[in-house]
Nucleic acid binder design. Structure first.
Length: 265
DNA sequence: ATACCGACCTGTCAGC
DNA sequence: TGCTGACAGGTCGGTA
């Protein structure tokens, strides 16, 4: 589910609410898929630890704990990390609850169980480069050798981390580039345009609190608003906001891909 | 070395 | 009303 703007919104909300708080105890559910670290290591690392900072790296939420360890959470497609009061009802598919000294709880809920939790000691860097920090020159160097379709390359987290299906489609529309174009075949001008478009779109989406397509909500349970600004994602057979042509939907790299056949070349 | 493709899961919705 | 199949914001590992 959540891509960079959604994870950024969640991480910022978590930081506001739990930075400085301490984890008193941890409950872990019975399903093993969400756990990348052994349950006993998760419990041992989290219990008694103080949360110093919560931030986003790629699509990961990183809790920096005292004693130098980190709690890393990836939300997969349907994961949520919610701040809840102990009295509130436990949602279906709750896999972990961290009780905090303040009396609140952090709850990890994930119906499809594609999300992942782990604890680690060394600093987590993420698999690729940060889309909002990379320079235009580095961005061009990242893609100009790839034989993959530019859409697939944008989704490759080892190159850029944080971009997912929605923002790949939206940034290719703004840069007026067809999703199936081979990355290495793009001109410097086109890659520069894509770099600008991607950074603009990600910043606009963060300002709108992310996109709520089916069930995304932030740490406080609030939906995002950027879905109302989508130009192509989810708009197949609807008129392009710029030229009026009907938006097409195809499959690129195994993912549903939306584009305007007239604006994008 | 690179690039597709299915598998991993549950929920929802369209179509019959 | 109820069943079936397709599809979903992501990632990984196997295969070609």
């Amino acid at each position: 589910m959540p891509e960079l703007p959604e994870v950024e919104t969640i991480a910022n909300g978590l930081h506001r609410h739990v930075a400085g708080d301490r984890i008193e105890s941890v409950w872990i559910g019975s399903k093993p898929e969400p756990l990348k670290s052994r349950p006993r290591d998760i419990v041992k690392t989290l219990e008694g630890a103080k949360v110093e900072r919560v931030r986003r790296v790629g699509k990961h939420i990183v809790f920096d704990l005292d004693r130098g360890s980190q709690w890393i959470v990836h939300l997969g497609m349907t994961g949520r990390m919610l701040i809840a009061s102990p009295e509130s009802e436990q949602a279906r598919h709750t896999h972990l609850i961290a009780r905090l000294t303040s009396g609140r709880e952090l709850r990890f809920v994930d119906p499809r169980r594609f999300g992942r939790l782990e604890v680690r000691r060394e600093s987590f860097q993420g698999p690729g480069s940060e889309p909002l920090k990379i320079s235009s020159g580095d961005f061009q160097r990242l893609f100009h050798k790839s034989k993959a379709a530019i859409k697939a390359a944008l989704l490759n987290q080892k190159l850029l981390h944080g971009v997912g299906n929605i923002y790949a489609d939206e940034s290719l529309f703004r840069a007026a580039i067809r999703p199936r174009r081979r990355a290495y075949a793009l001109t410097r001008t086109e890659l520069s345009r894509l770099h600008t478009a991607l950074q603009e779109i990600l910043k606009e989406a963060i300002a709108a609190g992310g996109s709520s397509v089916s069930d995304y909500v932030d740490a406080e349970g609030v939906a995002g608003l950027f879905q109302f600004q989508h130009c192509v994602y989810g708009r197949q057979d609807e008129p392009c906001r710029r030229c009026g042509s009907l938006i097409k939907k195809i499959v690129v790299g195994g993912r549903g891909t939306h584009y305007c056949p007239r604006c994008q070349r």
